[in-house]
Design a protein around this nucleic acid. Structure first.
Length: 733
DNA sequence: GACCTGCTGCGGGGTG
């Protein structure tokens, strides 16, 4: 960006007190992303997406110019609303903003469930400055304290959404979008929106979220630094023939996880690292193996587990230890450390198991923060033992191949785009209930306009919305009632649901047991666990014996023990694989080059997989016989294969889909080819929808009209149907 | 579907 000599620099445009604060911080200067953000925010009224990696200073990029604006004389009132998906992030940002805002004599208020109530009450009495809040706390404010909220937000200038990428998919993103629309309507002037995000593959998704009515208007600023390269290794490990497929705390020393632990112990010891292990069970099993190795060598512990069932205190201790950098520390985590507070210098990232999505892989890689140094990534691939009579697909060494395919796409810069979300009906219903509970009765037309018209991120047609309302007003549902003059009101069930403590969040959580040892809460395990006195559990990286069970308060008192079985967390399943990654898997199988980043075992797996690909004839034909069944290799990804599975099921076949293929029971390749030949036209998704099971997945789907859920499924499935038609056309028999 | 995230308002009693 060129600037004329007469134009003041970005720095000079900031408030004098902010300039002084910057000098006091000892900064060498503004980072390019900050410079750009200051010019854009102070030079226009546009919404802005700031995309940059960890430790890039994007919070300051947004706040320096916004605070400059907010410090201009005016009527007072709350000026900036910052929204975060995590309480921990709010506390972190609070500490960062405190001194800066003090200079401007501008109050900063934390607003979440654990934040001090006195400060919240003070803000309501004297709205001013900056508030840091969660989506659920916005919901509570709008629902329970409508009048306070109106006064609080009246003069709002800007809304900052941190970790915007976390809101681009899932019910919580729909929820927050709706809440911000409700906040807008309480403001004299629509506040400008600023999104802070990790680097996204697709700018349009972020812009559309920020301003769904005018998605072409937000300005995207993208940090160009951080490209210091990538050091990468993919390592292969084979499970022993008798492996159960379930990770246990048991040091047999021979399973893949134990050998992975050997390598990690050797190479991660002495520095700060993150190891992503997938499930809580695997996290516990791996952390225990690593701890055992420290104990055996008489070394202090430096490997610790981190997952959502662990007590907050234990997690915070570990986060603090990583951040302070005083002691070498490796966190073995699920997805808990993908988002959140800055973890300081992280030397390397390890991923146990082949990646299934580029979005998650990139997010994880981005959590290693050492400016100027190349990122270091190790992928530990676990392959099953392949018996002589193994299923054809098992012979392809898909995990290793998928890792290579994922690395190729990582280099290409590919990230899965977010599709339409299956929780739309639940969130629209939730927001309808919340709006009525807060504002009182409302007309259906007004409710549609306020919550889900065509300019909304939750857009839903009027006839679909009418069906949603009719379903919720049915006598046996009782969420809504309609008065004789057409006003919508809460029914008895609606009163109950909106009064419930769990109404503020639009996602569900299961009841869990609380594990207590020596008076200290270790964390929780799902209630589905059947546990008795004397049972052994592995938790928080150690082994425990159950001493007492309190069924009423759901407390398990445990004591330390030598041996331990792992808590039965939810059974493992899969995350969907995008068509692009599935296709890339086939390209890797069909090509010859052997990447230098593979260790000898991974190299051997890749070559075995390629040999099997040719031996099975998959280079020539899409279908191979497996006993009396057929494996149809589509290389089309989870969504398309799911459509094809429904199609085949609607034709009376029994089948099971995964991300690269579909297995069809009691059907030869020849019969399958003939059958697909007779299907002159793939049925519409509306027709296929009647064969879909498990339509109800989101929190309030139990109250949603089933036909509506089928129609919404059909709408979502249309792009996948188009791809499925193309896939069938491309099949080579 | 692996995993994760979040959360009243009010009344009664005690203290400064």
């Amino acid at each position: 960006m060129s600037t004329s000599a007469s134009e003041p620099s970005a720095f000079d445009r900031l408030h004098p007190e902010i300039r002084r604060w910057i000098r006091d911080q000892g900064w060498m200067g503004l980072r390019p992303i900050q410079d750009e953000a200051i010019r854009t925010v102070l030079g226009s009224e546009a919404d802005v997406v700031v995309m940059a990696g960890t430790a890039s200073g994007k919070t300051e990029a947004a706040f320096l110019p916004l605070l400059t604006r907010a410090a201009e004389p005016g009527d007072g009132g709350l000026r900036i609303l910052y929204v975060s998906p995590l309480k921990a992030l709010i506390n972190d940002q609070y500490r960062r903003l405190e001194t800066l805002c003090e200079r401007l004599e501008m109050p900063v208020t934390r607003w979440h469930g654990d934040a001090p109530a006195a400060a919240k009450a003070k803000l309501l009495r004297h709205p001013a400055g900056v508030a840091l809040i969660t989506p659920e706390s916005i919901e509570a404010l709008l629902l329970r304290r409508q009048a306070d909220a109106a006064r609080l937000f009246r003069g709002l200038q800007s809304i900052v959404v941190d970790e915007l990428h976390a809101f681009l998919k899932g019910p919580r993103g729909l929820h927050l979008s709706s809440l911000l629309g409700r906040v807008d309507r309480l403001c004299e002037k629509r506040p400008r929106r600023i999104g802070l995000s990790a680097t996204l593959g697709d700018d349009d998704a972020g812009r559309c979220w920020l301003n769904p009515a005018q998605p072409e208007t937000p300005v995207v600023l993208r940090s160009r630094d951080g490209g210091s390269g990538l050091k990468l290794q993919v390592r292969g490990y084979e499970e022993p023939p008798d492996a159960s497929g379930v990770d246990e705390i048991a040091d047999d020393g021979d399973d893949a996880l134990s050998r992975i632990a050997d390598h990690m112990f050797e190479h991660l010891r002495g520095s700060n690292n993150l190891a992503f292990a997938g499930s809580r069970r695997t996290v516990e099993a791996l952390a225990d193996r690593l701890r055992q190795r420290c104990v055996a060598k008489g070394l202090p512990e430096e490997f610790f587990p981190h997952h959502g069932s662990l007590a907050k205190e234990l997690r915070e201790e570990l986060e603090l230890r990583l951040k302070s950098g005083d002691l070498p520390t490796t966190a073995v985590a699920t997805t808990t450390l993908e988002l959140g507070i800055d973890l300081g210098n992280v030397k390397s990232v390890a991923q146990v198991g082949a990646p299934k999505s580029l979005a998650a892989l990139r997010q994880r890689l981005g959590r290693s923060g050492r400016r100027g140094d190349p990122a270091v990534l190790r992928i530990y691939v676990r392959e099953r033992h392949v018996a002589a009579d193994a299923d054809p697909l098992d012979q392809l060494r898909i995990a290793t191949v998928r890792s290579v395919a994922a690395v190729r796409l990582l280099v290409d810069g590919f990230v899965e785009p977010a599709g339409d979300d299956p929780s739309l009906a639940t969130v629209v219903l939730h927001q309808t209930l919340s709006t009525i509970a807060a504002d009182g009765a409302i007309r259906p037309v007004a409710a549609h306009r306020a919550i889900c018209d065509k300019n909304s991120y939750l857009a839903m047609g009027t006839s679909d919305y009418a069906a949603l309302l009719r379903g919720a007003a049915r006598d046996d549902v009782g969420l809504l009632e309609q008065s004789s003059d057409g006003l919508l009101m809460l029914g008895p069930e609606g009163e109950r649901v909106t009064a419930a403590h769990d109404f503020y969040a639009v996602f569900e959580t299961d009841d869990e047991w609380r594990l207590v040892a020596e008076g200290r809460t270790l964390g929780t395990v799902p209630i589905s666990n059947v546990l008795a006195i004397g049972a052994l559990v592995g938790f928080a990286g150690r082994r425990w014996r159950v001493e007492s069970v309190d069924d009423r308060s759901k407390v398990l008192v445990v004591a330390p023990h030598r041996a331990g079985k792992l808590p039965k967390f939810d059974p493992p399943t899969g995350e969907p694989v995008h068509a692009r990654l599935s296709q890339e898997i086939r390209h890797v199988l069909a090509s010859e080059d052997v990447p230098s980043y593979l260790d000898p075992a991974a190299r051997a797996f890749l070559q075995e997989g390629r040999a099997a690909y040719r031996r099975l004839g998959l280079d020539r034909s899409c279908a191979i016989a497996s006993g009396s069944d057929t494996v149809l290799a589509t290389w089309a990804g989870t969504a398309v294969n799911d459509i094809l599975m429904v199609l085949l099921q609607s034709a009376g076949l029994e089948c099971q889909a995964d991300d690269v293929a579909i297995e069809i029971a009691d059907c030869s390749p020849d019969e399958l080819r003939k059958l697909l030949g007779t299907i002159s036209e793939v049925p519409s998704t509306e027709a296929l929808a009647s064969f879909v099971e498990n339509l109800r997945s989101a929190k309030y789907d139990q109250f949603v009209d089933e036909d509506l859920l089928r129609r919404l499924w059909a709408k979502r499935a249309k792009p996948a149907r188009e791809q499925a038609i193309a896939t069938i056309g491309d099949l080579v028999w």
